[in-house]
């Protein structure tokens, strides 16, 4: 399987300051990659660079076979789910209306979207929410809203899915159910998923590989390798004495 994302020594400057440097990792089709790191580590910045919303200042970035200078061309093939606080919670849209937003692109400006209903139905079906199409979005639970937002990022049938802390604010059953859904999507559709998360235990048990950053690259490898590595402690400035995929007892932070 080919690499859908390849980053080599990637660096990003924001507001005159270098917020990312030396980031190296790759993502293959059908792989779930977890991006971990403390608050302010640059995880969202990395996703925005992969989307082409931020220019890289050094290194190399190749996404879906195109270099960082042409990422706009492959944007329709990338599904993106921003952090939960990015949308207006009380907005008067139905679940189907929210999913329809995902169909918008520069190509649809001043044009009618073709095959809209079928695409929305298929996206809702893929997240098990086909019966919720007409329900007001603002009246859904947090977990149901996340599924609808996931359907929005799937509606254009992307090859690559970028999710920014999709589990934040959800209770444990809703988190588990959401991760199970991602697992199914990965296997059924062969999607490559890049998931930013603060929940080390959940992400370690779901991901095929973890990328740990804190402004710079700390470690990249299988969950077991990353969780046992001393680089994880350096990134978080924490002592994760008992944390591993099979042993989830906690961490002792400074």
């Amino acid at each position: 399987m080919g690499e859908l994302i390849r980053a080599v020594d990637l660096g990003v400057i924001l507001g005159g300051a270098k917020v990312l440097e030396g980031i190296t990792f790759s993502v293959k089709a059908g792989e779930l990659t977890g991006i971990i790191g403390p608050n302010g580590a640059g995880k969202t910045t990395l996703l925005r660079a992969i989307l082409g919303l931020l220019r890289i200042c050094e290194g190399e970035l190749n996404v879906l076979g195109v270099p960082d200078t042409s990422l706009m061309d492959v944007r329709p093939k990338i599904g993106y789910m921003p952090q939960r606080q990015s949308f207006e919670r009380r907005f008067p849209l139905s679940a189907a209306d929210v999913v329809a937003v995902g169909l918008l692109s520069p190509a649809t400006v001043l044009r009618k979207i073709t095959d809209k209903d079928r695409s929305i139905r298929a996206a809702l079906q893929s997240v098990g929410m086909e019966n919720y199409a007409g329900r007001p979005f603002k009246e859904l639970s947090g977990g149901e809203q996340q599924r609808i937002l996931l359907a929005r990022s799937l509606v254009r049938q992307p090859e690559l899915l970028l999710l920014d802390e999709p589990n934040a604010g959800l209770d444990f059953p809703a988190q588990q159910s959401f991760l199970q859904l991602l697992h199914n999507l990965k296997h059924e559709k062969g999607l490559a998923i890049v998931l930013v998360s603060h929940d080390l235990v959940s992400i370690a048990s779901s991901a095929d590989q973890l990328v740990c950053i804190n402004r710079s690259m700390h470690i990249h490898g299988s969950p077991a390798e990353v969780l046992r590595s001393s680089h994880l402690h350096e990134a978080y400035r924490c002592q994760f004495d008992y944390l591993s995929v099979g042993d989830k007892r906690g961490a002792d932070c400074e």
Partner: peptide, 23 residues
Amino acid sequence: ILFFKELLAICFDEEMAEAAGLP
């Protein structure tokens, strides 16, 4: 009327609209 769907998307989730490549 011309930009209704884009305006609605921007009001709902500006970050997502930007990520979709909308102006």
